[in-house]
Simulated assay, not measured.
Amino acid sequence: MTAPPPAPSSGPSTPRRRGRPPRAGRTAADVPAARDRILDAARETFAAHGYDKASVRAIARRAEVDPALVHHYFGTKEQVFEAAVAKAAAPVLAGPSVLAEGDPREIGERMTRLFFSVWENPASREPLLAIIRSVVTHQTAARIFRQFITKNLVSRVAQRLPAPDIETRIELAVAQLVGVAMLRYVLRAEPLASAEAEDLIRRLSPVVQFHLAGGPPPLPPEH
């Protein structure tokens, strides 16, 4: 009696990658999007629970990935938060190039318009609001945010505006704009919350110009 023929081969076996496999239902095509899913999940988790109560495991659960993948892409919770800040603040980082272009006497208006263009757009405002909620409630989150802004905005702008005490000037300008953003978009304080953006730009631009370039701020033109 002859032995049955061997089962057909399914082809050469694919070597397994190190690390934990993706969760069931995820395919290799999902892998490139995993990083973005993690960042979106991180922003949502930090907004919902605050920096202190958010965890890598909770972020992974919301992103539907293994916690090991979060560590693989970002490392610690601090590094995840920093990456989430970078993604949320990406539109603001156009500041240095915007300030370098055009008439130096209009730097204040260009910076103010850039700032409002980011905050007035829901697509860029919501990620920033989620980050700000953690920043105002936790010292570590505030430190990470402050270091990121100093490194990626203040220092880069300072290189393009060589003037005495320029870093202090830039921080004063940023503080002016961030203060308005907190009242208008976070606290929803009236009348700032309902004011026309163009009116606020008209009022704030001379003050920002004063901080950046010095000299007495000109009065905004009357309507």
Rank of each mutant, 00 (worst) to 15 (best):
R20I: 02
R110C: 03
R110N: 03
A83V: 04
T137Q: 11
A47M: 07
V154H: 03
V118A: 03
T27H: 08
S55K: 07
G11W: 00
P15D: 04
L183E: 12
L204D: 08
T76N: 04
S117P: 02
E126A: 07
R105G: 10
G102Q: 09
L93S: 02
P218G: 13
A58T: 07
E78I: 00
H211P: 03
L129S: 08
P5V: 01
A189Y: 12
L129K: 11
A83R: 06
A86W: 04
L69Q: 11
V174P: 00
R160I: 09
Q176T: 15
P164M: 09
Y185V: 08
A142K: 15
S205I: 10
W119Y: 06
L192G: 10
R125M: 05
P218L: 13
R113L: 01
S55A: 11
P220M: 09
T27R: 11
F148R: 04
Q209D: 10
A33G: 12
R143G: 04
D103G: 08
A47H: 13
M182T: 10
L153W: 13
F210S: 14
A94M: 07
P67T: 08
A158S: 14
P217R: 14
L172G: 08
K53Q: 15
R57L: 09
F210V: 04
A173W: 13
Q139L: 10
Q147H: 14
L69P: 00
E44V: 06
R35G: 00
Q159V: 12
S194W: 00
A60Q: 09
A3F: 05
V178L: 15
P32W: 06
S97V: 06
T14L: 02
I59G: 07
